[in-house]
């Protein structure tokens, strides 16, 4: 009962704040709605017993990506706040976008609700998943792990090089 309540709370937080990201007129409000979306997602991960992923979500998304996005918002808008609005979009663009996303939502919901997913009956109870993730990363997924590390290094060097003022 309590589990259901907590799930619905986090689901409502995620969906409502995602709507805030998409529909709000000011960029800063969108950025702060994104903060609540990321925290709600972390809550859902905890409910799905993915503790390590939840903490990673908070540290990387909220601590890294969101800060970068807020920096981007502040660096690319006029200080006076006049130009911080997202700009008006055309009626046709809005209607086509709404129709597209509604069609996508209907297709996805139809698929998710009608397919008989094979789920395992027994639930494994582990105190923490960190041990298994570390074991997996250094045995089976060793090569993707190093490729991801090098890709991150290259991406950050490239970003610093591109963004540097001439």
């Amino acid at each position: 009962m309590l589990f259901d309540f907590v799930f619905y709370m986090f689901a409502v937080i995620v969906i409502v704040s995602a709507m805030g990201v998409v529909f709000s007129k000011k960029m800063m409000y969108s950025a702060f709605s994104l903060l609540f979306t990321f925290f709600g997602m972390a809550g859902l991960y905890v409910l799905l017993s993915a503790d390590f992923v939840a903490v990673t979500q908070i540290m990387v998304y909220v601590g890294g990506i969101l800060v970068l996005i807020v920096f981007g918002v502040m660096l690319t808008s006029k200080i006076t706040g006049v130009d911080i609005k997202t700009g008006t979009i055309g009626k046709i663009q809005l209607i086509v976008g709404a129709i597209t996303s509604v069609i996508v939502a209907i297709i996805l919901l139809y698929t998710y609700l009608n397919v008989e997913w094979i789920t395992s009956q027994f639930q494994i109870e582990v105190p923490t998943t960190t041990h298994f993730i570390g074991f997996g990363l250094f045995t089976e997924y060793l090569l993707p792990f190093f490729v991801a590390a090098i890709l991150l290094l290259v991406a950050f060097i490239g970003a610093a090089k591109i963004a540097r003022r001439k």
Binding site: V14, I15, T100
Partner: peptide, 28 residues
């Protein structure tokens, strides 16, 4: 929940003009 989040992200990407807001839709 994930389907609704996905369609909201698609809506954000398609309708926003500001490229940082397009990026936010991608994150969703």
């Amino acid at each position: 929940v994930s389907a609704l989040l996905f369609s909201l992200g698609v809506f954000g990407i398609v309708t926003r003009k500001n490229s940082i807001l397009v990026l936010m839709g991608l994150e969703l």
